[in-house]
Amino acid sequence: MKRIQKFSMLTVLASVAAFALQPAAPVQAEEGPTVKKVKERGEVLCGVHQGRYGFATADSEGRYKGLDVDYCRAVAAAVLGDSEKVKYIPVSSVTRFPALQSGEIDMLSRTTTVTLTRDSSLGLNFGPPTFYTGTGFMVRKAAGVEKVEDMGGATVCVVPGSTTEKNIAALFRSKNMQYTPVVIENQKEMVGAYFSGRCDVMAMDQAGLPGHRQFDAKTPDDHIILEGVFSKEPLAIGVRQGDDQWYDIIKWVTYATFNAEEMGVSKENVDEMKNANNPDIKRMLGTSGDLGKKLGLDNDWAYRVVKQVGNYKEIYDNNFGANSPLKLERGLNNLWINGGLMYGFPMK
């Protein structure tokens, strides 16, 4: 009897232990930079939005799509050689920074605005902006609002911990108007609250609004998006401070997408371009030089980024532009040579 008791205790303990240990990541004895962890794990842990059209949405089978998602894939393609080796971790506006700080994610690609505070006291580093937008507002057509000044006294739905939350506080204050914020952490709940009529106005990055109008409204035509943007929101990938190599990779993967567009390298022609006559293209795609080695990667990293994910134009068009249901103009997100702000630094 005693032996059985002991045995049973052992099995219970063993199963508990098995349960606790199985999902835990491999224990590392020594300190290793993020790349090492990512390679050991075989996947990039990428924090993405819970659901914003164009940036990150999951379909019913859990496949993610969007501009932010494409940057997770680009980094995985560069580091691991396969753009599918990403584990997407949806984070809310509130949980995103703790998730990065605590190591739950390796990179934060989630419509995150670069600000001084976040860069300094939150301990983040930001790559080059992958998208420029600003705070926008959606209102019901029936409310008769045409400009910001008509919104006095409105109830505004917004997610907490966002720059948008602070922007509307400053905007309404500067216009001397009252408003009531309704702050709901869960993005979908917040959008639902606006469409069910809890709020008069929904405030978020303007580029996110058309998608919500198109897919979440019962009748999209009942809602309008106010003209103009009301703040500067350069959205970029965030990483933890204290790992410069990882930060460099994020930075140059982003530049590679810009440069590829500028040099006319796309998914289709990247194989031919590898042997093009242009030394800049050859160096970027790794036919010559050793840029990859300098980053601690192999020489094909940028080739894989373009081959598997595409250049910036392709990424944009698939998620916001001509090939997407949203059909948004490039605007600020055009290359600098076309009047936009996208400016890839030289890859030399």
Binding site: F19, A24, A25, V27, Q28, A29, T95, S102, G103, E104
Partner: peptide, 19 residues
């Protein structure tokens, strides 16, 4: 459990969020 505990672990040691 979600936000602070991971900070209290030595580098490299991770536990699944569910655990």
């Amino acid at each position: 459990a979600v936000n602070v505990f991971p900070l209290a672990l030595p580098d490299g040691l991770e536990f699944d969020k569910l655990v």
